[in-house]
Simulated scan of single mutants.
Amino acid sequence: MKNILTLGLGKVGTLVGVLLSKNYNVTGVDKQPPHYSFKLPFSVILGDITDEVFLINLIKQNDAVVSALPYFLNKKIAELTYNLGKHYFDLTEDVETTNFIRTLSKTSKGVMAPQCGLAPGIIGIIGADLAKDFNKLRDIELRVGALPKYPNGLLAYSFTWSPAGVINEYINDAEAIHNGQRKMTPSLDGLEYINIEGKEFEAFTTSGGLGTMCETYEGKVDTLNYKTIRYPGHGKLMKFLIQELILKDDKKLLSSILENAKPPVKEDVVYVYAVVEGWKEDNLFRNEYYKAFSPITIDGQEWRAISWTTAASIAAVIEMVDKGDLPSKGFIKQEEIPFDKFLATQNGQLFK
Rank of each mutant, 00 (worst) to 15 (best):
R138F: 03
E218H: 05
E244P: 02
R230W: 08
F293Q: 10
T223C: 03
N74K: 02
A261E: 13
D173T: 15
F72P: 02
K11C: 11
N347F: 07
N83I: 01
E281P: 01
A128G: 09
V16D: 00
F89C: 12
L142E: 00
Y170M: 07
G235S: 11
Y88T: 08
L104H: 12
V272S: 09
N83L: 10
T50A: 02
V111Y: 11
S328M: 11
E202Y: 01
V144P: 09
M112T: 02
A261S: 11
M184C: 07
A174G: 10
G145Y: 07
L20S: 00
N135A: 14
T206G: 03
R286D: 03
G233P: 04
Y170D: 06
F72T: 04
C116I: 10
K227A: 01
A131K: 10
T345F: 08
G209K: 02
K60Y: 03
I123T: 15
P163T: 00
E96V: 11
D139P: 09
L237I: 07
S21C: 06
P33F: 11
I59D: 10
H234V: 10
I306F: 05
N83G: 01
F201Q: 09
K236Y: 04
D133M: 05
F42I: 02
V221T: 08
N287M: 11
N260Q: 06
T185Y: 09
I126W: 12
L55D: 00
Y193I: 07
Q301M: 04
V275H: 15
D139Y: 06
Y24H: 12
G180P: 12
P148T: 07
T107F: 12
K86H: 05
L15N: 13
S207Y: 01
L84P: 01
K76E: 09
G208F: 00
L247Q: 08
Q61M: 06
V265R: 03
E244D: 14
G278P: 13
P232K: 06
A344F: 01
P327Y: 15
G121D: 07
K86Y: 11
G190V: 05
A64S: 10
I332F: 08
E267K: 08
D30G: 13
I314K: 00
K183R: 06
F204E: 05
E335R: 10
D249Q: 14
G330K: 07
A164G: 15
A203H: 03
S162A: 14
G219N: 14
G235K: 04
D322A: 11
E175F: 13
E215R: 06
G165L: 05
E336I: 10
I296E: 03
E335H: 08
I126M: 06
V95I: 15
N179C: 11
L147C: 11
H234G: 01
K333F: 10
P295T: 08
S294H: 05
Y157H: 15
Y157P: 02
E218W: 05
P163Q: 01
G124V: 00
D63V: 01
I49R: 02
T297Y: 09
K183C: 11
A64Y: 02
K106R: 15
F201R: 03
N23I: 08
T160N: 15
W308H: 05
Y82H: 13
R230P: 05
L130V: 12
V26E: 08
L224C: 14
